[in-house]
Design a protein around this nucleic acid. Structure first.
Lengths: 218, 218
DNA sequence: CACATCTTGAACTGATCAGTTCAAGATAGA
DNA sequence: TCTATCTTGAACTGATCAGTTCAAGATGTG
């Protein structure tokens, strides 16, 4: 073995992912990717594939990385669905708050560009959103929600989660983002309380309506 | 006067707007705009300006057109904020359901592309979102919500409204979109009911929690 | 040192892009 | 018909794009 690989594949893929994430597919040139990764233009093609292939790898990488975090956040859904959904939103809010990372969301951005993306990329973007929806459905069903409420809340939570990407891109403040998810969290809290009342059991949640803007975090 | 204008400016602007709306700024070439409007390439520059100027005009046109509709929807907020918010969402849902128009939302799409748009265009996109937020704040304050609830719901409703653009781009069904807004509408209904109870008055709304997926429309 | 492997920079192709220019043609009023 | 105005199509410029190729150099092992 001589002339070993002189760059770290994971680092390079992360750099490419962040470049696509910040500027989108259309506004990222291969030269941009070369600058972002520090790899030579030739090395990009030989090691990471062409632009479309690389974008697909970045999209899957993004979906897998944050998918795992969303999974972990929802892991307590069976015992405490409200905390699970709060933790779910926190994955996104923490990502947005990270100054190292671009605002927005690569999946949301790709979804918006579906009409002008390759069929393969479009399919992966739809898939990522679909998986998130199914994750939320399963988690809420495992909690105390009815099937009907679980489905509706899953769609709603997934959508609100994507809306954070749009609003953060437009410069929304952390307080705004908290208000946005606060209403959803309150609504879920209320649904759980209604279900408990219907069952005749008492809820662990306080009886008064929570404030959407002052919800405790972590 | 001879050699009168042979095209209708409004029709041409609408066609350009729809082209930008469908494909976004980066993926729309001036030739695309020429094809979409039926105008010669030279005519585009002489009558509609360069690409950036034209995009700005289309963005403002879009914001004004649907801004008026959102205004009209919210006009009954003082007497019936719940109906107003439903009507607000219906403006978006009807637009998405219109097969003549692209999915998504030109403002949401522009917001997502802010890092790669010209400062002028980025400012107009932010402005459009800000105006919508203020509209909702004023409407909800005019209704029966507390200032704190009005602010939180305004941010939330504006965000959910933008999320519909993302989800519709990704091929979400009308039922999914209804579920998304249904949770928000239910939450608002609950907030109004809580406030009425606190006041000791009776609400016009039924006491049972409404279903998010079977909400009546129109 | 010799060798195999990887990396690099530069050049090149063919395509598309935004923006401009202009001569030829169409139009309709005088 | 004459004329002023608008429209058209085509060509052109200079830039950027994705993708490919390759010779020169760097690297580390045997």
């Amino acid at each position: 073995m001589a002339g070993k690989k002189q760059f770290d594949m994971d680092t390079a893929l992360d750099a490419a992912m962040i470049q696509f994430w910040r500027a989108g597919y259309a506004d990222t040139s291969v030269d941009d990717l070369s600058r972002a990764t520090g790899l030579n233009r030739s090395s990009i093609y030989s090691s990471l594939g062409d632009k479309d292939t690389l974008f697909l790898r970045c999209l899957d990488r993004y979906a897998a990385r944050y998918g795992d975090r969303y999974d972990a956040a929802l892991s307590c859904a069976a015992s405490d669905p409200l905390t699970a959904v709060r933790a779910f939103f926190d994955v996104t809010l923490d990502r947005i708050a990270d100054p190292e990372l671009p605002d927005g969301c690569l999946v949301a951005q790709s979804a918006m560009a579906i009409p002008v993306l390759s069929p393969a990329v479009a399919a992966h973007a739809k898939e990522a959103l679909g998986v998130q929806r199914l994750r939320l459905r399963a988690a809420l069903k495992a909690g105390r929600l009815t099937d009907q409420d679980a489905d509706a809340f899953a769609d709603h939570v997934a959508a609100v989660n994507q809306s954070l990407a749009v609003m953060s891109r437009a410069g929304a403040s952390p307080a705004q983002l908290l208000a946005i998810v606060g209403v959803t969290v309150d609504a879920l809290s209320q649904a759980l309380r209604s279900r408990d009342q219907h069952r005749g059991t008492t809820s662990a949640e306080p009886a008064t309506r929570e404030s959407g803007t002052s919800r405790p975090r972590r």
